[in-house]
């Protein structure tokens, strides 16, 4: 029997005004696991991550990370304590454009954690080497490619020595050639045992690195299981069709209609 999960979501509900985005999310992440959340756009994937780091507050349900009951945090100080434990990497990198790459990595550890500057500097340089950007320490974010900026953003999150890192569609803004270099960094982290929760559209990658995969649609978890089970033998029809579209034919546009379109031709009408 596995130990107590590091992250536990139970029946989490969240609505923006009248628009329900999460409608009862249950999710467990154990320490050292890599968990992917997949699903169509607008299904609430990113919202789950934002709830985890307290950027959004659910109206109902419980979120626990370690000993912290996230949904009950009151006041800035408690949120800050949580965010020291939880790293977050954004789709749009969101580096600080007025600071050099090195300063981007130093600012939080020195100003927020009060770490010694020289020590933080050594760690930051080591992290930049780790994401293969040691030679860019003095550059500014605006001078880097998207893939490089995203790797800096990952290093910036790691500089806080978080217990877990949340990745929010971190490759969605990148061109295909740069996706690989970012995924390589994340793969390394998961191999080292960093707890990672990823929202991703990179199905092959999710299949390869995830211990658990959650498939969401319309604010609900449709199904979850091991990567092998979800990708190899999904239970739900909806998961199956989504994965077919996501993985299908290497992402190419089908050159002819799927077979069942022919079979059901009578159901389509043609107006001229």
């Amino acid at each position: 029997m596995p130990s107590e999960p590091l992250i536990q979501l139970r029946d989490v509900h969240l609505a923006f005004a009248d628009n329900p985005v999460l409608r009862g999310i249950d999710l467990d992440v154990h320490k050292g696991q890599a968990v992917s959340i997949i699903g169509p756009s607008g299904s609430g994937k990113s919202t789950i991550l934002r709830c985890l780091t307290g950027l959004l507050r659910p109206q109902l349900g419980s979120i626990r990370i370690g000993q912290t009951q996230v949904d009950q945090l009151r006041g800035e100080a408690e949120l800050i304590a949580l965010r020291k434990q939880v790293g977050f990497v954004f789709q749009q990198y969101n580096l600080f454009p007025h600071l050099s790459v090195l300063e981007n990595l130093l600012i939080a550890p020195t100003k927020v954690l009060g770490r010694n500057r020289n020590e933080a500097r050594e760690q930051a340089l080591a992290l930049l080497d780790k994401v293969r950007l040691g030679h860019k320490a003095a550059a500014f974010p605006g001078e880097l490619s998207g893939g490089q900026q995203q790797r800096v953003a990952i290093a910036r999150a790691l500089a806080m020595r978080p217990e877990l890192i949340l990745f929010d569609e971190v490759t969605s803004a990148l061109d295909p050639e740069m996706v690989g270099e970012v995924l390589a960094v994340i793969r390394e982290l998961t191999e080292e045992g960093m707890t990672c929760v990823l929202v991703t559209h990179e199905m092959r990658f999710a299949e390869e690195i995830s211990d658990q995969v959650y498939f969401t649609e319309h604010g609900r978890i449709v199904e979850h299981g091991s990567a092998a089970q979800i990708f190899g033998d999904p239970v739900h029809e909806r998961t199956r069709t989504f994965l077919q579209h996501a993985l299908g034919q290497g992402g190419q546009r089908p050159s002819r209609p799927a077979p069942d379109v022919y079979r059901n031709l009578g159901r389509y009408s043609l107006s001229v």
Binding site: T53, L55, E76, L79, I80, A81, R83, K84, V86, G87, F88, F90, Q92, N94, L95, F96, P97, H98, I107, A108, K111, V112, L113, R156, A157, M160
Partner: peptide, 25 residues
């Protein structure tokens, strides 16, 4: 807004966000 969100996800206080990120920019 996302730049400030990044700052708050790095555990910056409101004050630090203002003086380290928002005002310099």
């Amino acid at each position: 807004a996302v730049t400030l969100e990044a700052a708050s996800s790095l555990a910056f206080s409101r004050r630090q966000q203002l003086f380290q990120v928002q005002l310099p920019l």
